[in-house]
Design a protein around this nucleic acid. Structure first.
Lengths: 292, 292
DNA sequence: TCCATTGATACCTTTTCCGCATTTATGGGA
DNA sequence: TCCCATAAATGCGGAAAAGGTATCAATGGA
């Protein structure tokens, strides 16, 4: 008992004539009659009353006609949807990104992607660079926006723009006397920075700024979110070295450039073996966006 | 491409192992693999990525899995519904009845039937005895409550109760002086009665009351509804002979018995060839109801 | 490097399905 | 009343689809 018999039955219900219905199904009447009989036998229900002169639907047949039409419509939808997903014109795309990327590149990427691929449900996931990396590898994420980090063989990297490390302090902090900050200025000061488990690349950038000058950062709190860091700095619980893009328009802090500020390339990462066809349109639109 | 392949695919998606999925489908692995391959060929879409070590769903496969489950659920529902309708436990029953039957037997019948057969949608159709007869014959109605009328070979009759013809007049009409009305009392008075096209049985009952006594009713208006008749009588536009059951509790009229009042058997009628299984429970419950 | 696992392929058997010929049943017309 | 035309059911043989057995090929782990 399958959809073919449903199609046969619908043809019969619409013609109320075994011969004509068979012809519509491109077959002869005898096997057609047998299929209808088989369908009724499998259901255990008489769907049509037939004399040699006329065919009428039973109430069960009326109901089955409506239901069968619905089933076939769903069936065709399922096939169509599978094709659409395979073409990347439907389905879902899960995009992970560092929290603060929501302030920069994410809105524009989301806007353009949804305009281009209205059929694709875009699920956004704000998280840490480390979890983005993991999500890409284990398949939870299709793409991630994060700092470049060290190269991995199964991950492909698409540059977006380059952020720069900067210093943030509470307003009126002694360091605000200086126009530009050099590593030596930070010696002995408590530094609030994201934990190395959450964002190793950012943490490395901080180290790379300080250690060549012989300065050892005095880490104090190690929250997960850049926004938490800014709130702690605003409360004058320490200073911080953060990407400059996150400081724009944030109240109660003072942002100041660093001498030869370390570069923080922000990139989009994907699995090299991209099974989700919805990813390709995302890559295609990156070229057409200039972020800054 | 049919539901069997969908079932195969669901088994594969749930086990992610061709051999185990084949076993679940009570078959061996090679033909199972072929069916999956055929499904993918027909769809034109790759649903699973397979190496000799592991099987994973593609995004299209994920989507198709969800859709296929929905299709099969609908499919099974369609089969189950057909059986329920065949058993009379689902589907629809269309019951026609004379307007004024809503005052007597219809509410109790409806209440009991819906309690007994909650799955059956009961569609009620108030209309005239003539249209009930036609509806039964052409299949629009499954059952009808009406006056018995003349026997027809394809119609089966189930007695409900016996109504009686009575006289109604405006309050204060000269006839209200009499306790019981005989045909002669009506001579020359304008009679409002339902049209013979709408309710021939009732009309005949009126004739049968008058003509044996040599009285010729002077018909004045011939509305379709008994209620209209009562309103016209209340306005003193004439007298009327109506079933006594419709007079109860109606304001601004005076009802009065007739001498050897003609009986008006109220019955339920069905087609002798009852194709709708939902009718039988209706007949079953008639025996357990005593109407008056 | 070898071996176990697992999906794909080749080939054959079984089942299902379809087409042709024929039969059966029924309604209309002579 | 009989005959005939129409339409669905049935019998049977061939084709197509599905399944089974044996085997091959690829891959990951010991």
């Amino acid at each position: 008992m399958d959809t073919r018999q449903m199609r046969y039955f619908i043809a019969l219900a619409e013609t109320l004539h075994f011969g004509h219905a068979a012809a519509r199904m491109n077959m002869t009447q005898p096997p057609f009659s047998r299929q209808i009989a088989n369908l009724e036998r499998d259901l255990g229900v008489r769907l049509v009353e037939r004399t040699s002169r006329q065919v009428t639907l039973t109430p069960a047949g009326e109901r089955f006609l409506a239901d069968a039409r619905a089933v076939l419509a769903r069936f065709d939808d399922a096939c169509r949807d599978a094709r659409l997903v395979a073409e990347g014109r439907a389905g879902a795309l899960s995009l992970g990104f560092m929290m603060h990327a929501a302030q920069t590149v994410v809105p524009e990427i989301v806007r353009r992607y949804t305009a281009l691929q209205p059929g694709v449900r875009l699920s956004l996931c704000e998280t840490t660079p480390m979890e983005i990396e993991q999500g890409l590898i284990n398949g939870t994420l299709d793409a991630g926006i994060t700092f470049s980090g060290r190269a991995m063989p199964q991950i492909e990297v698409w540059p977006l723009f380059t952020d720069h490390l900067c210093l943030v302090t509470a307003p009126g902090h002694p360091l605000t006397e200086l126009d530009v900050i050099s590593p030596q200025d930070l010696a002995g000061l408590p530094v609030i920075a994201v934990s190395p488990q959450a964002a190793p690349t950012l943490r490395n950038a901080i180290e790379d700024f300080c250690t060549p000058a012989g300065v050892e950062p005095q880490y104090r709190f190690e929250p997960l979110l850049q926004h938490t860091i800014l709130r702690l700095v605003a409360a004058d619980l320490g200073i911080a070295l953060v990407p400059e893009s996150i400081c724009r328009g944030v109240p109660d802090i003072d942002a100041r450039p660093l001498v030869s500020a370390p570069e923080l390339p922000v990139v989009l990462k994907t699995r090299r073996s991209r099974t989700n066809p919805a990813v390709q349109p995302l890559l295609d639109l990156l070229g057409s966006i200039t972020f800054f």
